[in-house]
Simulated scan of single mutants.
Amino acid sequence: MIPVDDEWDKFESYEDYDNFTYNWIKECQRVLKPEGTIWIIGMYHNIFRVGKIMQDIGLWFLNDVIWIKTDALPNLNGRRFTNNHETLIWAVKNKDSKKYTFNYEFLKRINGGKQMKDTDWVFGLCRGQERLRDKNGIKSHPTQKPLKLIQQVILTASNKGHLILDPFMGSGTTAIVATALERNWIGIEKEEKYVKIANKRIEDYIKLKKV
């Protein structure tokens, strides 16, 4: 994945970033049901700061899941390792939240009868027909996540009819997967250009389902 370079993701200082992050995570915690869970994905640029904020406000960690990329972009200048993974922090509302949804047996079944590990999440980047592009062939969204990754998250921690909230809807991947898996969803997106992209993508998917 390439770093986001949109105006909404630029901050004057770490303090500004931390304040922004604290505010949106705190609001997610407020609306999170006791039986629900929260997943936040990030890279080495930000995930450690995010994790500290999550713990500071009382979210209780269940796992840090490692998405291993099968086709990570190489480090061209040879000055550091190829960044081959992203981290997903999986947490509940607080330490007293014990009745959260975790589809353990299903995950074991699709993992060849073995208990799934937090490093068994091996997926390629979003490429080919799945990658949204504009008429000039430019990527429509800089950090579009692969459908299979979001599918694994939703299958892990929700059931049919549950409500999924994505506070950074982007290109609409969460909505597409949630719809396919018969979950309800709410998506929030600040940037108008991404709202249009997500809406069209969702509309096209719904039309395709009706065919």
Rank of each mutant, 00 (worst) to 15 (best):
L208P: 09
I150E: 11
K190F: 02
N77E: 15
M54N: 07
R201C: 01
G112Y: 03
I188Q: 05
Q129V: 13
G128W: 11
D16N: 06
K93A: 08
L208Y: 15
I138R: 15
K160C: 05
N184C: 08
V153K: 09
D9P: 11
I188P: 03
G36W: 05
R30M: 03
E27C: 02
W39Y: 13
K200C: 09
I202P: 07
N83D: 14
Y44I: 02
C28W: 08
K209Q: 15
T87Q: 06
Y205Q: 12
L208F: 15
E191M: 12
M43L: 11
L59G: 07
D71W: 02
N184E: 11
A178C: 02
D134E: 11
E12G: 10
D64N: 08
I40T: 03
L132G: 11
W121H: 13
Y205W: 13
Y22C: 03
A198Q: 15
H85Q: 10
T143K: 00
T87C: 06
D64K: 05
I38V: 08
T119D: 09
F168V: 04
S158H: 13
I206R: 14
Q152M: 13
K93N: 07
D9N: 13
G187W: 02
S140H: 14
C28K: 07
I154C: 11
K52I: 06
K207I: 15
L76K: 09
Q129F: 08
L59F: 05
C28F: 07
V4I: 04
F48V: 01
N184M: 04
G42S: 02
I206V: 14
W39R: 12
R49P: 05
M1V: 01
